[in-house]
Design a protein around this nucleic acid. Sequence first.
DNA 1: TCTGGCACTCGGGCGCTCGGAGTGCCAACC
DNA 2: GGTTGGCACTCCGAGCGCCCGAGTGCCAGA
Lengths: 338, 338
Amino acid sequence: MLSERRLEVLRAIVQDYVGTEEPVGSKALTERHRLGVSPATVRNDMAVLEEEGYIAQPHTSAGRIPTDKGYRLFVDKLAGVKPLSTPERRAIQNFLDGAVDLDDVVGRTVRLLAQLTRQVAVVQYPSLTRSTVRHVELLSLAPARLMLVLITDTGRVEQRLVDTQTPFGETSLADLRARLNSRVVGRRFTDVPQLVQDLPESFEIDDRATVKAVLATLLETLAEEAEERLMIGGTANLTRFGHDFPLTIRPVLEALEEHVVLLKLLGEAGESGMAVRIGHENAYEGLNSTSVVSVGYGSGGEAVAKLGVVGPTRMDYPGTMGAVRAVARYVGQILAES
Amino acid sequence: MLSERRLEVLRAIVQDYVGTEEPVGSKALTERHRLGVSPATVRNDMAVLEEEGYIAQPHTSAGRIPTDKGYRLFVDKLAGVKPLSTPERRAIQNFLDGAVDLDDVVGRTVRLLAQLTRQVAVVQYPSLTRSTVRHVELLSLAPARLMLVLITDTGRVEQRLVDTQTPFGETSLADLRARLNSRVVGRRFTDVPQLVQDLPESFEIDDRATVKAVLATLLETLAEEAEERLMIGGTANLTRFGHDFPLTIRPVLEALEEHVVLLKLLGEAGESGMAVRIGHENAYEGLNSTSVVSVGYGSGGEAVAKLGVVGPTRMDYPGTMGAVRAVARYVGQILAES
DNA sequence: TCTGGCACTCGGGCGCTCGGAGTGCCAACC
DNA sequence: GGTTGGCACTCCGAGCGCCCGAGTGCCAGA
């Protein structure tokens, strides 16, 4: 276990390095932070920290920079989450309040997050699996063709065509619509399969095939998590990444286009609470030089989707975490209101 | 007017510079191209070309690079559109054929275009204003609340809620639905307003307000061009942009996030035919060091949307134009089939 | 009008030096 | 034992001078 002072030294190193982007040495440290000890002592502490793998030297006789492990310790033990200032909070609320529909909410969120953190923001659209059904509509487009419209509590609308073997009467249709809605409205998507399981049996034998087809389509729509969408913003902030440009930035841009990867990444965030993945902790190789801060957000108590930012490992963790958390909270509120 | 040979020199300069990314000198030119004259002659020609503003020197005693004006002349007079090879065409077709829905078509198109041109691809979703109506559905969600669903020939579905003052009977609803569809199905959006103008008059006086409300919502949906969407891909190709990274790339990334700007940019492409905007020809300042190649695509003879690429002014114009044209053509086919 | 020759320019690469910041180690001190 | 000041050492990076090569402009001659 590291002594109190050594932790303090690590904290100072992280803070300075994040600020200056340059390796930090013992003398500079004692000058900028009131550690109460001499540079020589700090040097000894640094040697220990290096041995333990928390910091590293780019080359002999240079200052130290934190390693991924160092950042990890910093985030876990040394840094809190920096709450936003009141004006900042107010600005967030005002900005998000102006949103007119779901697309707009997500769009504003992504811009806001990118601006606050000066990093790349990623916002997942509220997922279908977690949300609840607001309404299911059925209508017949042609004798043997139905249209299924699903409206969710997060404002998303999905529609599918259902081809049926046999024509389906208007009365049967109305019947199905009514029964279906009475069972599923207000329920969570995950519960729907159970709730409609025995529905076909209560219909005339001739209609059962059609009912089954409709239900199959409905369940398929619900299950189609693959269609989870993302919005990304603030990519211009990548230019503030580092000095050795093309090499660092390219894989990140590539990763950002792989929405599947990003979704997986966000998904790894724990059910609740904030997740911080630092450097090599990211499974995806292209993001090995970045950190991802993500958190769930939701309209009720529960998370319906995730959002987060991607930035250099050398980032202001407390500030970023504060911004991410605050934005998630306000988006949740907005969704609950609408 | 420039002599034939001087044009040839300009062409050679453009080609070499695009290939090497380095200023090209007189000697290298005569070695790589069979111009049939000596370097000294080429030097004279270069001096003229420079005076006319087609090429420039980064600094004294360096080679020449084309100016925007030079590229313009090259594109207009010297370069054709390079057709794709047969295998390439086949690959495009195969790749696009696999698409399952509109989102998928656009997604595949953007990836394809980015890969073929090795640049940033931008694809606009088929616009509502140009396409035709496939079906209009009306259904009542509550006594005084209707839902309007619009299905377009490009596979897009838009839905709106309509609140009515008075309840609207099922028979009236079916009536309106039938009459509405008989008038507008297969028609272009722009023609719809005229076609439904006199519809309210043919209804009972009690229902007219509702009919008008429905029509108003329909027209509003049609008119809502603002909702035009874009998909962007291949941003990782920006890393191949140039040497002086952050400065060049930052404004481009910013521009790419301004979908409004991009839509305007694409919109500037002439009604039909390909548009090439070179460097400062782009109204948007952030794209002053890029060229934009765009073209309309559509399911019928007419364009329903645009697509294109954004790349450095130093790009392979014939190849890029060929790829853009080919992709647009195939996307059009795919849309027509579905 | 084209060509070869020539003097000139300039950027970039290479090697060198030098200073500053930083380190590790050691002996002394509390 | 932990802390400190001193000291020798390392190494990067900035600055400088140098030279080479590629390129140019100009001119006289074919």
